[in-house]
């Protein structure tokens, strides 16, 4: 990573708290993500990993604390500012969240027309083909999402997110429900896309091979807080038994 990029903080969470029906999910989240960094968040199910990235994307409002993205407080943004922020953020949902009434082509055209504001048919076609080529799905352009396999849906979700060239990518369990080989392919694709599009990535996963392939840094989440941070190798040899248990 270049030296200058290391210094620029694009995501800054300070003392973030969030509860649902009295159940505290995030109790004190403090985290900084540098520009160009690939950060992996590990934790048990229900620990609030997805809640954290939904707060970053402005889909959920934290109860307390600060969530700054590109230096601006997300909770204090008006709808127009939030829309502008979201143009710079890509979010890959756990089940890819493809629009199932649209073909692959229409799924790609949707953000291009509405978010990037493109209306030139040639340019839309070129951008669609470029991103489909990057994820290896050019043959599927006229298929419906229901005709795609689990791995293809994830690739397609990635393509739809990357087509507007976001600066930050948020991945919510990108390899869940996939076989080992496809998981590995998706993990390598994430890394490849990060290098190609120079994005900053936050990846939520339970999948240790995925974490090993994609991460520059890993943080471990437990009881609504981050309890450890480091590279995979550092955490694998940590003193804390709970931290090491993720890598067994």
């Amino acid at each position: 990573m270049p030296e200058t990029a290391q210094e620029e903080i694009v995501i800054d969470l300070q003392g973030l708290k969030k509860s649902f029906n009295g159940n505290e999910v995030l109790s004190n989240i403090t985290l900084q993500v540098k520009k160009g960094e690939n950060l992996v968040i590990l934790g048990k199910s229900g620990e609030g990993k997805s809640v954290t990235i939904k707060c970053i994307a402005g889909l959920l409002q934290p109860d307390a604390g600060s969530c700054r993205v590109f230096g601006k407080e997300v909770q204090q943004m008006d709808p127009a500012e939030l829309k502008e922020l979201r143009k710079r953020i890509g979010f890959l949902f756990q089940n890819a969240a493809l629009y199932d009434s649209m073909t692959v082509r229409e799924n790609l055209e949707f953000p291009l027309k509405r978010v990037a504001g493109l209306h030139d048919k040639g340019e839309i076609e070129q951008r669609s083909m470029e991103v489909l080529e990057a994820v290896g799905l050019t043959d599927a352009i006229d298929k419906m999402p229901s005709e795609l396999s689990g791995g293809m849906r994830k690739r397609m979700g990635l393509a739809r997110t990357l087509i507007v060239k976001p600066e930050i990518m948020l991945y919510d369990e990108p390899t869940t429900g996939l076989d080992t080989i496809t998981s590995r392919e998706i993990s390598e694709l994430i890394l490849d896309m990060q290098r190609r599009y120079k994005t900053t990535s936050v990846i939520i996963t339970h999948d240790i091979p995925c974490a090993r392939i994609t991460s520059d840094r890993v943080v471990i989440m437990h009881n609504g807080e981050y309890i450890a941070s480091g590279t995979c190798e550092e955490l694998e040899n940590a003193d804390d038994e709970f931290v090491r248990s993720f890598f067994k």
């Binding site: 994307a57 402005g58 889909l59 979201r86 890509g90 979010f91 969240a97 629009y99 953000p111 509405r114």
Partner: peptide, 9 residues
Amino acid sequence: DAMEVSGAN
């Protein structure tokens, strides 16, 4: 959510 987070309305 995907529509909203992509900046579409």
